[in-house]
Design a binder for these strands. Structure first.
Lengths: 348, 348
DNA sequence: CTGAAAGCGCTTACAG
DNA sequence: CTGAAAGCGCTTACAG
């Protein structure tokens, strides 16, 4: 009764265990899952047999019976942006504690890639989805809903009551960042934003405009558009330097852009923070570890991942029906890139 | 015949499609999988029905029948080390092109966590495993083998013919790095190594010793032990500075440690590269984006991930039996952190 | 070219 | 407390 696989391995099934223990498969299933009443003796016998045959249950078969795979998809633009690994850790920590596995999906912000994932994930393979992408459309949410797959969206509020969403006060954070630059004496403050299609990116730009939008020197040319990565930040910062050599403060839409801006400033000969003060957004670990360390708007990255997974579990396990909307607070972390009058070396 | 899920959703099965099209489930299965001969007409009818019911096959059921889940585990110490996201992208790119999904597993270098994953993964949930961890033991490989789950190990050569391994010339790379420091004039060269249990970490240390081990000033106190992250590198660098203020070059076992060393040097008032030249290892993207940019030993990170997944696919699809051992070349990338006589600003 | 039926390895009402 | 049997949703020899 033991199946030989073509590869040469041997697959022990619940049937083999039942035979070995002299009981039915139902009984074996019960001891494995600790369900129903069983006498100490039969339990011992079954456990003995499981050990002897070094049996491990086939989770695929179990999943099919239970209609539950204990797998969850984590969809991100790209895991190479350090923001997402930090969040992934939180998601995975909660997932593991609850017996779930994480499927990693990178979309590169491409609608096509995203749509492929949604299609493949609706095939009953995952029990739920955590998504961090501006590619989600209403129709996706409906398809997911139809297949009974709950969704938690992070950092992206698609206005829908089909999914729980978790975001931060992007606009307020951006305002804090820009006001901080004003307070330390910056008089020409530029902004490097992320892609306009990104909701959070747009919010951060508006926060910046809330502060400088009415000042006499301001016009659109003070806003540069970058992608959320270092290289793009570096390039756009240089464009701003040549357009506005008098710039003395930059609020960057994320920390990676800020790191690129630091590099551009260094090459351009601008001293940080005295010639140019820089503020980032996100509060990734790296923001503290660069030279100079970055002033930034801290999102509670780990907490967001944790909350997302916890909410998703509630929905998957049917204890909750109504999607919720979280909007979390952010903090301004003041570090070297804006510390003009500190005891630290003033410039790099 | 349509099943109503408790959540309110509706699950369309192959049976519903068959009924709708007036054919057997076997036929539906054949058109879905493009197997066997079918007339154009029945195919059209079936496709019509699939569309009308917006049917998607249940991959769990398919997996159970096929004994193939099209899922692969990617096991890493922690995805927050940027080395792994870069590799994960390669793995996922190849995986996606071949219809596989990636399960993300962080072990934090803990044997216990690792063992839990191995146990859970042997339950037929994944078709193969790519592992980057020094926690793998011979018994794990045997268990995996027993369950017919092929393994590719990266950056870690556990001497076994049960798994394919992919590594780089760690010792040679370390030698190149240290020799480079000698060549630019460093006379007291320290090393900050990773954890000793790590095979690659040990190799890099030996490469360093190959170059400086016989010099009169050398002793064990020139080697600091860190974990593979920025904060640890920062701390150990400071220890070295106070133990050996005369240090003028440091070879760090990875780029994160090097980034921490840059920060420590900055705080300590040591100018890079003239007071202190620094070389890292790995060649993560960030190594190019710091100020100063880091001289480093470049591993072909993306290629390694790609190769790993390609090899794994071969093994999963049974075209290959014999495990292989790859040992790839590395390159020394010379950048600002060791450019003592360049036209760049000399110091930061 | 197509269908009836058995099988993948579990789980779980339903009896007893 | 335990077992026989049906079912989860697919796939695939085997007939025809």
């Amino acid at each position: 009764m033991v199946n030989r696989l073509h590869g040469g391995g041997v697959l022990v099934t619940i049937r083999d265990v039942a035979k070995e223990a002299g009981v039915s498969t139902a009984t074996v299933s019960r001891v494995i899952n600790n369900k129903g009443k069983i006498t100490k003796e039969t339990q011992a016998i079954v456990e003995r047999a499981i050990k002897d045959l070094s049996y491990t249950p086939n989770v695929l078969a179990r999943s099919l019976s239970n209609r539950k795979s204990y797998a969850v998809a984590f969809i991100v633009p790209t895991i190479t942006n350090p923001f997402f690994p930090e969040m992934a850790r939180a998601v995975e920590d909660v997932a593991r504690d609850n017996g779930y596995n994480i499927l990693l999906c990178n979309t590169d912000d491409k609608r096509e890639r995203f749509a492929e994932y949604i299609t493949s994930l609706t095939s009953q393979f995952v029990d739920g989805i955590i998504v961090n992408s501006h590619n989600m459309e209403k129709s996706d949410l409906e398809a997911l809903q139809k297949h009974n797959i709950p969704v938690v969206m992070i950092d992206r509020v698609l206005d829908s009551d089909l999914a729980t969403s978790i975001a931060v006060k992007n606009r307020e954070g951006a305002r804090m960042a820009t006001e901080h630059l004003v307070e330390i004496g910056c008089e020409r403050i530029a902004h490097i934003s992320g892609m306009e299609e990104e909701w959070n990116s747009a919010q951060r730009m508006w926060g910046y405009r809330d502060v400088v939008g009415d000042l006499p020197w301001f016009d659109q040319s003070w806003i540069g558009k970058a992608a959320f990565n270092v290289h793009s930040g570096y390039q756009v910062a240089k464009e701003i330097f040549s357009r506005h050599p008098e710039v003395d403060g930059i609020f960057c839409a994320n920390d990676l852009i800020a790191i690129g801006t630091v590099k551009a400033a260094y090459e351009w000969g601008k001293k940080i923070p005295n010639d140019l003060a820089i503020v980032g957004f996100d509060g990734i670990n790296m923001s503290e570890q660069t030279v100079p360390s970055l002033t930034t708007v801290l999102q509670p990255i780990y907490d967001m991942g944790q909350l997302a997974m916890e909410e998703l579990i509630k929905k998957m396990e049917d204890k909750e029906e109504k999607p919720k909307k979280y909007v979390l607070d952010v903090d301004l972390l003041i570090r070297e890139s804006t510390m003009r009058s500190s005891t630290l070396q003033k410039d790099i």
